[in-house]
């Protein structure tokens, strides 16, 4: 249940109005840079630097054409999509299995396993990036999407495991015993009884991983240094800035291609974003 402290009294109309108006102005300034890049993606270069207005004279769709085909954003879009989808599947399956066992069973070595995991929570990405780069080279998977996808799925998903473990540990034992009576084994109990119960956690973990995979930068920029073909969108836009430095409107269009899918996803699935983020401090 939600709890609220309503220190703005309903009867105090003036105070209410002032706070609302202050927040509206604040929100406009807050969101302005994002609106600005959206509007710039439909403008001509000349118009972008002309004024602060957000409404373009006419919609210049050619910006998107140049970005999608000319700057290869189309290819990068599908690279990013593949990496994101596959890494979400890998992460949900592996951390789900891990969380299930950690949340419901005790076995020799469990404490050591948890201890190792917890100790890696705050390892900075910059600390592991060089050996990861070297490892993918040695395994010969640094030049295709396989390596990048695996490494994207293999970052420390401790928070995912904790979310799963917490949820699984609250499932009543009776359910499991009933399944056992029906003759269901370990795997079948997990797949047909337990997994369907955890849909909310699956959704939350998926969203967090989508956010991570789609927006990651350090890993893809290092892995794709010598392979422009497997760049992700973020790296693509960064390279775009270096290569076509004067094509502002094209770059704005490329930026919009990168950020719009996630913003739309966020607007529709806000609840799960919030739960995932808040899980980090509640746990």
């Amino acid at each position: 249940m939600s709890r609220y402290l309503n220190f703005i009294a309903e009867k105090n109309q003036v105070k209410y109005l002032i706070i609302t108006i202050a927040f509206i102005i604040f929100s406009f300034f807050w969101i302005y840079p994002l609106l600005w890049v959206l509007s710039a993606s439909f403008k001509t270069d000349f118009e972008i630097w002309g004024g602060l207005g957000l409404i373009p004279d006419r919609l210049v769709w050619e910006n998107f054409e140049r970005a999608w085909f000319g700057a290869n954003m189309g290819r990068y879009f599908f690279n990013t999509l593949i990496i994101t989808v596959v890494s979400v599947i890998i992460v949900v399956v592996t951390t789900g299995m891990f969380g299930y066992v950690i949340g419901r069973y005790s076995f020799p070595g469990k404490k050591i396993l948890i201890g190792i995991l917890i100790s890696t929570i705050f390892i900075p990405q910059g600390y592991t990036i060089i050996p990861v780069f070297d490892l993918l080279n040695n395994l010969n998977i640094s030049k295709n999407l396989i390596g990048l996808t695996l490494a994207t799925a293999g970052h420390t998903p401790v928070i995912y495991i904790l979310l799963f473990a917490g949820y699984f540990s609250r499932v009543p034992v009776e359910l499991e015993e009933a399944a056992k009576m029906d003759g269901a084994g370990f795997v079948r109990t997990f797949i047909s009884i337990m997994l369907p119960l955890t849909k909310p956690v699956v959704a939350t973990v998926s969203i967090l991983q989508v956010l991570h995979a789609w927006n990651d930068f350090l890993l893809p920029v290092v892995i794709t240094l010598g392979n422009p073909d497997i760049r992700t969108l973020s790296v693509g836009v960064y390279a775009f800035k270096g290569e076509y430095f004067v094509d502002w409107s094209g770059m704005a269009a490329a930026s919009v291609i990168t950020i719009l899918p996630i913003i739309i996803l966020f607007l529709f699935m806000q609840k799960y974003f919030v739960e995932g983020v808040q899980g980090a401090v509640k746990g």
Partner: peptide, 19 residues
Amino acid sequence: FVLPCSILTGMFVIYPIGM
């Protein structure tokens, strides 16, 4: 059940820390 996740974490977190 803990194996797949442990392998991934081992490859991309534990091994890199050691290396």
